[in-house]
Design a protein around this nucleic acid. Structure first.
Lengths: 207, 207
DNA sequence: CAAAATATGGAGGTCATCTCCACTTGTCAA
DNA sequence: TTGACAAGTGGAGATGACCTCCATATTTTG
């Protein structure tokens, strides 16, 4: 995937400068308010160079995002190694809320990107999704989590939390979502609903 | 809120044309791929007229969105009148997934708007949020739903479903989220977790 | 019917995005 | 070290979307 092309020394330096500046702006949340050209100047490179390294805004974002994802994946694996799966999952999800809370700008930027151009970003976040899926699968094997709900649902809920981060009562609501998801995931909940499969299509709210 | 100004006959006709076209493009999901000027031509009006009626893309979207929201609010109230609150809530949430599935383009457009410019849209969706909040409150009074989780959490989960609508296994995952939320909302789940308040800050995933 | 009020539409200004290429910088073999 | 070729740079300017402005057209009213 990452075919390391021997990049020229000079080029590497510029690229790093771009990436460093991007990270700053990204985290400050002003990623979309800044003219792309000015962004180049801010990083101390010419527009041409900026476009050479990152053809689009999204490409740049994706590069920054990549490191972030890697760190989160590491954390998932650390937790999985240290705790029972169900607990690891709970801790990770709670920690995710803290993390998003601590990096508001980043969350904002990411959700915007997700909504507009999901192609590259969705691809990049696949790794995190895989890690979470593994964790959920482990919890299912433990018997502490129901097996009739896809791990993707957890990602979806997480996505909702990130995307809605500018709501007034965000923190409380985000904690609420996590609580609902975790309690909903307990196997006993599945037992309490023995009918199993739930109908997919029913009354539709016509517009 | 909607102070009806006596609009000139001609103006009303143009406005309707704009709105009708908007709804089509909106539903087709091409709302952001279409040049705003071309949009005017498509509706058979001049650019000036377009901008007179809807100063920004968002304003136009908001106008379309408004009707949608009203319909959903109606549905919430109908269900609440016809069923026990907990059941009404479940039916509404399941129905929402059907609805989003049936209007993919609209869901896509809305989530994009939410992410980019939440001001007007968030304001417009307040009505729906209020209706859902009422419904949850009724279920809490019934005793069929826990009282320690904000109704906003449900909206957040819903938001996540809408925003992630282009995932491969969307339908199954969306149903999964709803299942988790509904099972998580059962009062008994709260009883099973008697410690009550959950810590807000713990280990953070440093980046 | 005339005139006053209201609305139209599209030509053109403004500004962010992106391309292109003359020039600079790095690399490598001799 | 040096020359020469490859690799990269940067910013001037083309492109094209967004929005404003106002001379003209359409309604409404007295």
């Amino acid at each position: 995937m990452t075919a390391d092309k021997p990049l020229r020394a000079d080029a590497q330096r510029k690229r790093d400068a771009l990436l460093a500046t991007a990270r700053e702006v990204f985290d400050a949340g002003g990623f979309f308010d800044l003219r792309f050209d000015d962004f180049a100047r801010l990083a101390g490179v010419g527009t041409g160079t900026l476009y050479r390294h990152f053809p689009t805004r999204e490409a740049l974002a994706e590069a920054v995002y990549h490191g972030e994802i890697a760190a989160l994946c590491d954390r998932v694996r650390q937790l999985q190694a240290a705790l029972p799966a169900a607990e690891a999952l709970a801790t990770f999800l709670r920690g995710m809320v803290d993390h998003i809370a601590a990096h508001e700008g980043l969350a904002r930027t990411l959700s915007t990107l997700m909504a507009t151009r999901s192609d590259a970003l969705a691809e990049g976040s696949r790794a995190l999704e895989q890690a979470v899926t593994d964790l959920v699968a482990a919890a299912v094997r433990e018997g502490t989590v129901r097996d009739d709900v896809d791990a993707g649902a957890v990602m979806m809920a997480l996505h909702g939390i990130g995307a809605a981060h500018d709501r007034p009562g965000w923190r409380a609501e985000a904690d609420g979502v996590i609580t609902l998801v975790l309690d909903g995931l307990r196997s006993s909940a599945a037992i309490r609903t023995p009918s199993g499969r739930r109908g997919a299509n029913s009354g539709t709210a016509s517009s």
